[in-house]
Amino acid sequence: MEFKELDPILHSQLRLAVVSLLISVREAEFTFLKEKTNSTAGNLSVQINKLKDAGYIEVTKQFSNNYPQTICKVTKKGIESFEAYVNALQSYMNPGKE
């Protein structure tokens, strides 16, 4: 029985939470992610950058009503990695089904 390796980028509480949220929506603002994950702005910002560097999410900075806005969106690579992560999790939890 061989277990699939869990993606270290996703196997972290906050990064997994961010990608799980972004999987369900088309795009979301930084403040939405902060509110839903109940995280600090600094920590969230660091984890978003890690996801961005891995190519899992796209980050767009823009101005809306003179206020800066950071919009995050999951990429195709991010979706594929998330699916692989969930499959790997399932193989750990239901080893008999593999």
């Binding site: 869990l6 196997h11 972290s12 509480q13 906050l14 990064r15 997994l16 939470a17 799980s20 949220l21 999987i23 369900s24 839903k36 994950t37 995280s39 920590n43 984890q47 992560y85 969930v86 999790l89 750990y92 939890m93």
Partner: peptide, 18 residues
């Protein structure tokens, strides 16, 4: 972010966020 993450906890986070 850096707490050890069990498989059950991972699934719980995914379900909760979705």
């Amino acid at each position: 972010n850096e707490q050890p993450l069990s498989n059950e906890k991972s699934l719980q986070i995914i379900q909760q966020m979705i």
